[in-house]
Each structure stands twice: as C-alpha cells, then as structure tokens.
Amino acid sequence: MTQVSWPMFLMYCYFTAFVFIAGIYCILATRRLIRIMIGLELLTKGVTLLLIAVGYLMNNTGLTQALVITLIVIEVVVIATMGGIVLSVYRVHNSLESKYLRKLKW
C-alpha cells in the first residue's frame, strides 16, 4: 500500500469533517424535502469517508472496502425509498415544503 503524506491525510480529514458539518447544516437549515435528502446523503458520505480514513490508519483496507461497499449499497436503498416517499408527498400536496408534514399532532 502506498503511503500518503501526512499533510495530505490531514486535508482529507478536514474535508471529511467539512462534508459532515455541511450535511448537518443542510438538514437543520432547509425546509424542503429534497434538500433534507441531500443533507442526509452528505452526512452518510461523511461517515463513509471517516470509515475509509480509519481503515487506512489501521492498515486494514480489505475489511474497510467490504464495509464501505456494503454501506454504499444500503444507503442507496434507503435514499431511494426516501425519494419514493418524497415523490408521493409531492403528488399529494403538489409541493415539496416540509410545512405540509405537520398534520400529526395530539
């Protein structure tokens, strides 16, 4: 395995943290369903990058590859399901604003 220089790796870590924070901000700041989905996707991508970093540090890239590929497959399934639900919401309300999803209260 080729070694990456330390500043390069640090930059990778900063980027991972940036993706993660961007995802959290995206979910908190927006009121649109599609953007919430994008935020979740960013969060999951951040975690994927974190797992890769851990695998690199542990020198165990084989196991990490298996984990990351499984993670990506499952994440696609979850996001596709969520997309289907958002699409149905759009068909019902003709809008993607999350304010329509506030009917359930006691």
Binding site: I36, L40, V78, M82, I85, V86, V89, V92, L104
Partner: peptide, 26 residues
C-alpha cells in the same frame, strides 16, 4: 397523506440514528 408524513419522519430520524451508529462503529 398522514402515513406519508409518519413514514418521512421515521425514515429521517432512523437515517440520523444510522449515521450516529456508523460514526460510533468507525
């Protein structure tokens, strides 16, 4: 419409839970 709302809330919080668990797994 109500079921879609419930499903969306479940999927959102469940995905956030997943992200938390994966971070911890890492």
């Amino acid at each position: 419409p109500r079921a879609l709302e419930g499903a969306f809330k479940y999927i959102l919080l469940s995905s956030i839970a997943t992200v938390m668990m994966l971070t911890s797994i890492a």
